[in-house]
Write a protein that binds this DNA or RNA. Structure first.
Length: 966
RNA sequence: GCCCGAGUGGUGGAAUUGGUAGACACGUUGGACUUAAAAUCCAAUGACCAUUGCGGUCGUGCGGGUUCAAGUCCCGCCUCGGGUACCA
């Protein structure tokens, strides 16, 4: 009989379910531990072997923590909203909910057979009204909140209104959009609509005009991904940038806290670095460049003053409101604000560049330049940011005809527009310092604009910029050609310039963030409806008692003919008072931003989660998921959590204490080589002799790169009569490592492997494949090895007649040493998430105990507990066979005892000039000077010392001896 | 382009703090057991040179450097993977 994994695994999965072995209790005397997996999107193709990689690792850890006496919360759920189900609905008319349900069922079945220790009673699904009620609820709270920079937290909008009624916005220091200063009298005199418009600039969830990729032919907005060279990926239709009213979340208000929060969480350095870059803090200055009155004759120039009065930045990050008269810069048209990280180089600013999207371009462009500018803008606008950033080699741009005044030296500098300046960063306008910025340098060279050197390194003479190949590195050095800054260091000059700017009202020091507010509207069907209705065109949120606002049925999942989102097709999509409801839906990250909180108290229909539940579980102790979420989900959830923290709903301001990113499992594709124009296939190593075409072949028809030719013929009708040119009687396939995907026929479904080897083997093998955090190709070849290991492990306990062979005989020191060495190693490996080396430690241990023919309970009983987190089914079965009752899951994890591991000797590798030559066994506690002596006097040493002088002997106790000769 | 990561035998990988490179496993080859197969067990297996034995040289993507000692640290490259804000 032997090891019957099929029977064992079913038996114990049933046992766990019936006994609620993995139930997490919201009240417990045990310490809590929260292990979370990033929940999956249930795709139609089911689970492939890449998905469970992280789940297995976290399951091992969760089980390990249970063995240590923790009350472990280890939940699972589904990120159920997503585009694939919607696409499928568009194509087939099947409601995405139907598809999603079906897929979840499939996922659940597949997850269950791997033996995860989830508490399924806590499952959440983002598309379930019981769940998304709280997503909508959070949105309402965001809508009703603003960010007070003085208290540094979100506060209720009612308090803000009360302040406006008393004092206007004079004393309000908020993270907000562009608002003019106003008084209490102003505020009280405005009607509802005007007041709401002002409030919108303060709300944390707000409506504003946002540029989107609009595809008129598809009637929809596209992701940057879906746009290739200005055309839609699907269908190749033209795509244009269009302003659209969209909901956004004011995540930028939290930029500083999101950045500083990284200091106190245990995430990998690279991931934190990615988030830091994403948030993108930079220190610098906001500088206002006046328009030259004599040289700027754009048609719209006269209307600029009014425009700028509203747009010019009034706030300073440290809270002080700077009232800058918009006449600064002397131009009749006011000024263009520019953010620069290098205000010290202002004297080197020889031109200005505006992003093609910049709102002022068509106003300042002169009549002569207008046509050219418009042409350029039209073209540049429709290129994606990605393209614009990538193609740095081709310099393009157009002169607008207008001039700005360099505020420090009064020089007129030309204003250009070029697509290397992006509208989304800073103010969408830059002062170009070609002497010290390589992109500006390339631009100036190309268009023959002046280049001035304003920084020179210590001890270097300034040189003629016309002789340069690139801009001059100016991170440090001294200022030259810079008026009052001359002779200062870069650091001094930055400070002095900012002081000057603030003194004269030309500008001010500013900390800028690259982070943008999160656009929260999607023109899709399959997402959470916004709890928002419109009255006289003004958005209001529904009363909380009306939640959840359920997703309505529609006749088609497409936008309407007039380009409105699919929800506009819903009948009676209005409130009971008759006001129209919002037709956009929320994006994918809405539901995933707070799901970890709902797991704490998923049955609560009065609250998101109870205070008690939150105070018990607090935060996620270990979070596992892919690093592709580094800049998306992991920022949004941190923001979501901080907001709820400000409201006093959650007690920890960082949600994920420790985070591990598992690598991706790549596919390993196999290829057959068809001789062109025939139905003959030539084996891999002979293919060069023919003109061949490589075709993907289903990896299920291939074993160890050898093709099953008969199965191949039956695979597809077109190959029925295929014939083969073999090598050594076999057809060898080629292979390549690629993404695991259906189209490449390299998807490995775990079901078949579980059928053949069992879940415990699959679990061990996925861990054995390599380090958790690293990407690695899937290769079926090694699975036999771990399967053999489990069978061998089984035989330590049970013989071929299914009889227990474990004895109560006293274990020897050597046997105990093997056990305790393994305990130490396995524990250490789990603690540092090195599961691959953990598996190999079990293999080594099993090999050694087999060689010793050890069948002693004293060794084997602790050993099976040690294995339980990795291979829980076999461990349960053996544990029971050993005579134990009640399951293994909560049995105390063994601890090693140092006394069994002490060695009296150490075999020193002796090297000469760094090359290892022989080994020398010496007492472990031998003093260093004696070791040196022993090494030089050793018989084997003479050969290497002969004719040379021993210059030095380096001894690292219990490591190495190195003799330096020469 | 920018940001992050990775490159070690035929293959997946090990080497935890600068200290014996290749643990463990796959594959391959040879052998034992068997009528045979499966299963199991034993041995060899980085490359090259030498081979009667002792052995020797090279070797962790490439080029430099630091050090008694570098897969590991530093500088400069190359290749591949991920992210780049509406895929999840």
């Amino acid at each position: 009989m032997g090891y019957e994994f099929g029977k064992i695994e079913k038996k114990w999965q049933k046992f766990w379910k019936e006994n609620k072995t993995f139930k997490a209790y919201n009240k417990s005397d045990k310490p809590k531990y929260y292990v979370l997996d990033m929940f999956p999107y249930p795709s139609g193709s089911g689970l492939h072997v890449g998905h469970p990689l992280g789940y297995i690792a976290s399951d091992i850890y969760a089980r390990y923590k249970r063995h240590q006496g923790f009350n472990v919360l280890h939940p699972m759920g589904f990120d159920a909203y997503g585009l694939p189900a919607e696409q499928y609905a568009i194509q087939t008319g099947t409601h995405p909910e139907v598809t999603t349900h079906k897929n979840i069922k499939q996922y659940r079945r597949q997850l269950d057979q791997i033996g995860f220790s989830y508490d399924w009673d806590r499952e959440v699904r983002t598309s379930d009204p019981h769940y998304y009620k709280w997503t909508q609820w959070t949105f309402i709270q965001l809508f009703k909140s603003w960010y007070n920079k003085d208290t540094d937290k979100a506060e209720s909008i009612e308090k803000l209104v009360a302040a406006f009624e008393k004092h206007g916005n004079k004393n309000i220091n908020a993270a907000c959009g562009p608002v003019e200063p106003f008084t209490a009298e102003n505020w009280n005199s405005w009607n509802e609509k005007a007041q709401q418009q002002v409030l919108m600039h303060y709300r944390l969830a707000y409506l504003s005009d946002t540029l989107v990729n609009w595809c008129p032919a598809l009637g929809t907005v596209l992701a940057n991904d879906e746009v290739k060279e200005g055309l839609s990926e699907r269908g190749g239709h033209p795509v244009e940038k269009k302003l659209m009213k969209q909901w956004s979340l004011r995540i930028t208000a939290y930029a500083r806290r999101l950045l500083e929060g990284l200091e106190k969480i245990d995430w990998s350095d690279n991931l934190k670095e990615m988030q830091r870059n994403w948030i993108g803090r930079s220190e610098g200055a906001m500088v206002r460049f006046g328009l030259s009155p004599t040289l700027s004759k754009g048609e719209g120039a006269d209307t600029l003053k009014e425009y700028l009065d509203n747009k010019v930045f009034h706030e300073k990050p440290d809270g002080e409101v700077v009232t800058t008269p918009s006449t600064v810069g002397e131009g009749r048209g006011g000024a263009i604000p520019v953010f620069t990280t290098r205000p010290d180089t202002l004297f080197g600013a020889t031109f200005m560049v505006l992003a093609p999207e910049h709102e002022m371009i068509d106003r300042i462009a002169t009549t002569e330049q207008k046509e050219e500018v418009e042409k350029y803008v039209a073209r540049a606008k429709n290129r994606s940011e990605r393209e614009r950033m990538t193609e740095v080699k081709t310099v393009t741009g157009v002169f607008t005809g207008a001039y700005a005044i360099n505020p420090l030296n009064g020089e007129n500098i030309p204003i250009w527009t070029a697509d290397y300046v992006l509208s989304g960063y800073g103010t969408g306008a830059i002062m170009a310092v070609p002497g010290h910025d390589s992109r500006d340098f390339a631009f100036a060279r190309h268009f023959h604009l002046p280049i001035i050197q304003v920084v020179t390194k210590k001890g270097e003479e300034p040189t003629d910029p016309s002789t340069w190949d690139d801009s001059y590195d100016s991170k440090e050095g001294f200022m030259i050609n810079s008026g009052f800054l001359n002779g200062m260091t870069v650091t001094e000059a930055i400070r002095a310039t900012i002081d000057k700017l603030e003194e004269t009202g030309i500008g001010y020091g500013k900390i800028n963030f690259r982070l943008r507010d999160a656009i929260f509207s999607r023109q899709r069907y399959w997402g959470e409806p916004f709890p928002v209705y419109y009255k006289n065109g003004i958005p209001y949120t529904l009363d909380e008692s009306e939640l959840p606002l359920k997703l309505p049925p529609v006749d088609k999942y497409l936008p309407t003919e007039s380009g409105e989102p699919p929800l506009a097709r819903a009948k009676n999509w209005k409130t009971k008072e008759g006001y129209p409801l919002e037709t956009n839906t929320m994006p994918g990250f809405a539901g995933s931003s707070g799901y970890y909180l709902r797991y704490m108290d998923p049955w609560n229909d009065k609250e998101y989660f109870s205070k008690e539940a939150n105070e018990y579980w607090r935060d996620v102790d270990l979070y596992l998921g892919g690093d592709e979420h580094a800049a998306g989900h992991l920022i949004y959830s941190r923001f979501w959590n901080k907001f709820l923290y400000d409201l006093g709903l959650v007690c920890e301001d960082e949600p994920f204490k420790k985070l591990i990113n598992q690598g991706k499992i790549q596919g390993r594709s196999n290829f057959v080589y068809r001789i062109q124009g025939t139905n003959r296939f030539v084996s891999y190593n002979l293919r060069k002799q023919y003109q061949t075409q490589a075709l993907h072949v289903d990896i299920n028809l291939v074993d160890n790169d050898v093709l099953d030719t008969e199965a191949f013929k039956k695979w597809r009708p077109e190959f029925k009569d295929a014939d083969f040119i073999l090598e050594d009687g076999k057809y060898i396939c080629g292979y390549e490592v690629e993404k695991m995907s259906k189209s490449k026929l390299n998807v490995q479904n775990p079901d078949e492997l579980i059928q053949k080897y069992g879940a415990d083997t699959l679990r061990l093998y996925e861990m054995f494949l390599g380090p958790l955090e690293q990407d690695k190709p899937w290769d079926i070849k090694g699975i036999e090895g771990v399967y053999r290991f489990l069978k061998k492990f089984w035989r330590l306990y049970i013989d071929e007649n299914d009889k227990l062979v474990v004895t109560d005989e006293k274990a020897t020191d050597d046997e105990l040493k093997v056990l305790h060495k393994t305990i130490k190693k396995v524990r250490g490996d789990i603690e540092r998430f090195s599961f691959n080396t953990g598996v190999s430690a079990f293999m080594i241990c099993t090999n050694e105990l087999s060689d010793m023919k050890c069948h002693k309970r004293e060794v084997l009983e602790p050993l099976v507990v040690l294995l339980a987190p990795y291979a829980p089914h076999i461990a349960e079965e053996i544990w029971e066979t050993l005579g134990n009752k009640g399951g293994i899951s909560h049995v105390t994890f063994p601890e090693h005892e140092e006394k069994y591991l002490i060695e009296d000797t150490f075999a020193y590798p002796v090297s000469f000039n760094g090359k290892t030559r022989f080994k020398l066994e010496l007492p472990a506690d031998m003093p260093v000077n004696e070791i040196e002596k022993a090494a030089i006097e050793a018989g084997e040493a003479q050969k290497w010392i002969e004719g040379k002088t021993v210059r030095k002997v380096i001894v690292v106790p219990k490591r190495i001896i190195n003799v330096v000769v020469g």
